[in-house]
Design a protein around this nucleic acid. Structure first.
Length: 514
RNA sequence: CGGGGAGUGGCGCAGGGGGAGCGCGCACGGUUUGGGACCGUGAGGUCGCGGGUUCAAAUCCCGCCUCCCCGACCA
């Protein structure tokens, strides 16, 4: 680790962002593009949307580009995405899936093979009409999702029950022409993973659909520290072409809902549209049962909105590109040498046990750096100054408890175990705070008057008869949509639809949503 | 696609017929560094684009483009 050949603030020798150890992703090289006038962020209570945009731009997660709705994911934001990918990819592999890559362009006619699918996506397709200076025989759509091309290929690859199940995932970009865009939440182009599987029986497909919903739920809970509600989408809200769609819904810091991931049981809809057939043991031709499931860069928006506070981001340690930022502090030159020597000791101690970085830029004061790394959501700050050097200790400051109360002194010899413990505690605390917030803003009711009052302030759980008309009427009157029918239902469900009063057997979650 | 707001130096903004300014950032020098330090000197702009009115347009008129916010549609 030879720091003298690098710019002083780039003291990390690199290494994969997926692994622990010193990292260099997203280091601040300068303060360009950041408004110094707005040293404090717009408080969330004052203007939540403005706060959201400011956090993203100032923390350098992303930026706008010349094309409407297209954003650039900057190194710090991309490092976060890479950690999300790593957490998911590991789970996909553990459940037997393989990665592959399917093409960006899809013949227009493919989309048209599944009636509901094309109807759902037609308004938001980007279509390529020319190539190589000539008009194309058949327009190509830029994939909005890949069920159709993948269906086409599955039909060729699958012949026998012995070829099943076929379990493939792809990491890709997709394009959906959106009227209204928002950084990470709804961009014209976005990154995601889409899993596509084919099975011999309906039951296996259903098991797969719920297995992947559980994978998403586990990722959200353990890695992103976001509590989610697993549920089934209503007919109105389901994926175009699916038999049944499932979702994990999360509550953002302004009490609105966000669909964080989806998993679809596609039934035989795409199998029939694309002739995905196999010969069973009795030598009879059968249609496959397929599924698809996806999670996108929207998850980054969820992390920002679930955990962020008025100081900026608060990243869950499991996903944070930088888990600990070391800030050396000194006054006099001889102190500088001592402190920096001690920092070398800390670096050796930490090794690749956590993802750390040293901010020894001399053009900023310690206080400035404290605020800056809090804005960027780094879970733990390690302060080391002359006093700490003398006492062979460091100060650990936790992001989830800003200011003096979140600081503690630990002996340098205890740094690694203390830090690891602290990171775990922060991870748990972020989840606990998010869960508490959601519970505080969730109500159950069977009275429509009350429903109308409370639904503006969070999640409302109510019996629903299943009629799309009731859903639509509720949306028109309250701006709240049916987020999902939670998988967890009362043991002896019995009630009346919150809107029409007809007998209802299931409860749904209603909320305003992103 | 409707409603609202905005395009002036890297960022945030003021200026509304006649000299393109302020704050921050940036560069250089010096003093500083335990919760967003300070002094000095400097660099940096076809005022979103295109037309028009005028002796004269950042400023007035017409058209267009882009971005943000709020709604309808969607991961």
């Amino acid at each position: 680790m030879d720091s003298c050949c690098m710019p002083s603030h780039l003291q990390a020798p690199g290494g994969s962002c997926y692994s622990n150890g010193p990292i260099r992703a997203g280091i601040l090289r300068s303060r360009k593009d950041v408004s110094p006038m707005a040293e404090a962020l717009t408080p969330r209570s004052q203007d939540y949307a403005k706060w959201y945009n400011e956090v993203i731009l100032r923390a350098e997660l992303a930026d706008y580009t010349p094309v409407k709705g297209c954003m650039v994911i900057r190194p710090y934001g991309y490092a976060l995405w890479e950690n999300i990918q790593a957490g998911l990819d590991r789970r996909f592999k553990a459940t037997g899936h393989q990665n592959a890559y399917f093409p960006l362009f899809i013949p227009m006619s493919f989309l048209q093979k599944e009636a509901e699918h094309v109807q759902g996506f037609a308004p938001e397709l980007a279509v390529v009409t020319h190539g190589g200076g000539k008009k194309l025989e058949e327009p190509l759509v830029v994939r909005p999702t890949s069920e159709t091309v993948i269906g086409h290929l599955y039909a060729q690859w699958i012949n026998s029950y012995r070829d099943l199940p076929l379990l493939i995932n792809q990491w890709a970009n997709v394009v959906r022409w959106e009227m209204r865009t928002r950084l990470f939440l709804r961009t014209t182009e976005f990154l995601w993973q889409e899993g596509h599987t084919a099975h011999a029986t309906e039951q296996e497909a259903q098991e797969e659909t719920l297995r992947m919903l559980e994978v998403y739920s586990d990722f959200a809970t353990r890695d992103a520290a976001i509590p989610v509600i697993q549920g089934r989408k209503s007919e109105r809200e389901k994926f175009a072409g699916a038999q049944t769609s499932y979702t994990i819904e999360a509550m953002m810091g302004d009490t609105k809902a966000l669909q964080a991931a989806t998993s679809h049981n596609l039934g035989q809809n795409f199998a029939k549209a694309f002739n995905i057939q196999y010969l069973d043991r009795q030598n009879e031709l059968q249609y496959c049962w397929t599924t698809s499931w996806g999670l996108s860069t929207r998850m980054i928006g969820a992390i920002i909105m679930v955990h962020g506070d008025d100081r900026g981001l608060r990243l869950p340690p499991v996903l944070a590109p930088v888990q600990a930022i070391i800030v050396p502090i000194w006054k006099r030159p001889e102190e500088r040498a001592q402190v920096l020597a001690a920092v070398e000791g800390l670096k050796a101690l930490l090794g690749d046990r956590v993802r750390w970085q040293v901010d020894d830029r001399e053009e900023y004061t310690a206080g400035w750096k404290f605020n800056e790394w809090e804005l960027r959501g780094v879970p733990v700050r390690i302060e080391i100054g002359p006093k700490d050097v003398a006492r062979e200790q460091v100060v650990l400051a936790r992001r989830d408890r800003p200011g003096r109360e979140g600081k503690s002194c630990v002996p340098q010899a205890q740094l690694v175990p203390s830090l690891k413990e602290l990171l775990e505690d922060i991870q748990k605390n972020l989840y606990r705070q998010a869960l508490e917030f959601r519970e505080q803003h969730t109500q159950e009711t069977d009275d429509y008057q009350e429903f109308k009052e409370v639904v503006a302030g969070g999640f409302t759980r109510a019996y629903w008869c299943g009629s799309p008309d009731c859903e639509q009427a509720i949306q028109a009157e309250t701006k709240a949509t049916n987020r999902c029918i939670p998988l967890e239902q009362p043991e002896q469900p019995a009630g009346h639809c919150i809107y029409c009063g007809q007998p209802a057997r299931e409860q749904a979650i209603f909320a305003r949503a992103y």
